[in-house]
């Protein structure tokens, strides 16, 4: 082996690196170009047209965003409150539903799972307009409860699908083993099923959290102008041409997303993923 390797020329002119590096560069630009722009705007004081880079850097806009009088703090608190409530409610529904679905016969399960998907098949806008009209009658418009409900309907499909997959990947005999030596069904669920499903359920909760944090259309129709969330702030800021405020908001939205994605990537194992949607 060594003699063969040694007899080869030390340098071989491989021209393939040119198209390869161009392709890689393009991909990198498509992914990181807008992000770089976003981060630049977040730390810009002054930047106008002919200049490729900002003229002046600084954090004065961050001060404005986080000032007690600014709307950003209120939006941030609203967003996080809504997201946590959404996760709590969605998981309270998704855990029992997911468990029941996971233990159901397959054809029936597939049908019910598909039903959960149907709301996603309709265009968002008309659905939310109608929800807003309905919520108005119940006095839910402009309340945190109303926004949470909209976010739950939106996030539930992910929550149920992932929870179902998490439960389905648990071998039934593990539960039967507990039952056979004297555990009640509830005790079995607490001591065996839930701990084993926990990584999948955590991933499911994070998905719902991120969906809630990013959700715009429903929040706009049901929440605005009384309940302002981060995406709504982002919208008003960028519509008003205030790119600094919009970019800072976007960065704030981006951070939990990236963080949680890393957590999901670590916890969501392939045996759970393979069962999503089945």
């Amino acid at each position: 082996m060594t003699t063969i390797a040694a007899s080869r020329p030390a340098f071989s002119l491989d021209l393939w690196w040119i198209p390869r590096s161009i392709a890689l560069g393009l991909v990198a630009f498509i992914i990181f170009g807008p992000l770089t722009n976003l981060f630049l705007w977040a730390v810009t004081e002054r930047w106008y047209f002919p200049h490729a880079l900002p003229l002046e850097y600084g954090f004065s806009y961050w001060g404005r965003v986080f000032s007690p009088r600014g709307t950003a703090m209120e939006s941030l608190t609203n967003s996080i409150l809504v997201a946590f409530l959404t996760v709590a409610l969605a998981m309270a529904l998704a855990v029992p539903a997911g468990y029941a679905l996971a233990r159901l016969r397959l054809p029936l399960r597939a049908l019910i799972m598909l039903t959960f998907l149907i709301p996603q098949a309709f265009p968002n806008l008309p659905v939310y307009v109608n929800i807003a009209r309905l919520f108005y009658q119940f006095g839910l418009n402009g309340t945190v409860a109303g926004v949470v409900l909209v976010h739950v309907t939106h996030g539930l499909v992910y929550a149920v699908w992932i929870a179902t997959a998490a439960f389905a990947s648990i071998d039934r005999e593990l539960e039967e083993a507990a039952r056979s030596i004297g555990a009640s069904p509830l005790r079995t669920f607490r001591d065996v099923t839930l701990p084993l499903a926990a990584p999948g359920l955590l991933a499911s909760a994070i998905f719902v959290f991120l969906e809630s944090l990013d959700e715009f259309t429903g929040s706009y129709f049901v929440g605005a102008p009384d309940v302002n969330t981060m995406p709504l702030l982002l919208y008003t800021a960028s519509a008003g041409g205030n790119y600094q405020i919009a970019s800072i908001t976007a960065v704030l939205l981006l951070l939990p997303s990236v963080g949680f994605m890393l957590v999901i990537e670590r916890f969501l194992k392939s045996d759970v993923l393979s069962k999503v949607g089945h």
Partner: peptide, 20 residues
């Protein structure tokens, strides 16, 4: 009666040990 009330213990072919 449910399995947990029968005073029996079952050893499974797959062993079914709890991995956690």
């Amino acid at each position: 009666q449910p399995p947990d009330k029968r005073g029996m213990a079952l050893v499974f072919q797959s062993y079914a040990l709890w991995p956690h």
